[in-house]
């Protein structure tokens, strides 16, 4: 009987130890921030020399108010404009040049922001703050530094900024002969996304850091090797 109790005690201790040490994953919303880019052809990326950037504002698709203010949008756009010439070494085509037909850019660039509100309850066991959490609404939501147990309410905005690089030549060819009432098909030469950056106070410096990362990805893609 004594041995049986000893076995049961040791078994439960080992399992409890293992479970409490189970790695918990993301702790803060910043741990979930990602920068991701997609492209069709490396040759096309290498062929782009000039761009036109829509500089008036960043388009909004949102169910919350947690999007960038116009002042923030203009600050982000100014940085994007600088880094397109700096990191990507592309030549700028101005609005005047575009409208007069003096220059046709290789890329037509537009940014858009998408913000979605996430909220819910989670139950946190009292004995271990790092526990992955029962009743957690799926994986992947950020943990919070709860102390003690009980229910907690969380609410955060999960936002993405999209960078669409439209291939002007391919898009023009694709839409030859379409009527004025038809929606043109846009051919993307490259698309970048900063996911999670609208989560935290819409920090412009944070977004600017993300822009640097995305454009560095563009250059990695151009290099064409793993």
């Amino acid at each position: 009987m004594k041995t049986l109790l000893l076995k049961a005690f040791m078994l439960s201790s080992l399992i409890a130890l293992l479970q409490s040490c189970y790695p918990g994953g993301a702790e803060y919303t910043s741990d979930l921030d990602i920068a991701i880019s997609r492209y069709e052809s490396v040759e096309n990326l290498r062929s782009y020399r000039s761009y036109y950037l829509v500089e008036d504002s960043i388009a909004v698709t949102s169910n919350t108010k947690d999007t960038l203010t116009l002042v923030q949008q203009l600050a982000v756009l100014a940085n994007v404009d600088t880094q397109l010439q700096g990191i990507l070494e592309l030549e700028k085509v101005t609005k005047t040049e575009l409208e007069s037909g003096a220059k046709v850019p290789d890329l037509f660039i537009q940014l858009s922001q998408i913000a979605v509100q996430q909220s819910g309850f989670v139950w946190q066991p009292p004995y271990y703050p790092g526990y992955p959490g029962w009743g957690y609404p799926g994986w992947g939501y950020p943990g919070y530094p709860w102390y003690g147990g009980g229910y907690s309410y969380y609410s955060y905005s999960n936002g993405t900024i999209l960078f669409d690089f439209i291939d002007v030549e391919q898009t023009t060819k694709e839409n030859e002969g379409i009527g004025n009432d038809e929606v043109p098909t846009l051919i993307l030469g490259w698309q970048g996304a900063l996911n999670g950056v609208l989560s935290r106070a819409n920090s412009v410096p944070l977004i600017n850091e993300g822009v640097d990362v995305l454009f560095d990805q563009y250059n990695t893609a151009k290099a064409g090797t793993e």
């Binding site: 990602i34 990362v213 893609a221």
Partner: peptide, 26 residues
């Protein structure tokens, strides 16, 4: 249980994808 946090860049020319971000591998 094996676990590791990884911050490496994912670069796949075949898929046309480059990604940066923290990966939690279990």
């Amino acid at each position: 249980v094996l676990y590791q946090k990884v911050d490496d860049r994912y670069n796949s020319p075949e898929e046309g994808i480059v990604a940066d971000g923290r990966q939690y591998r279990y």
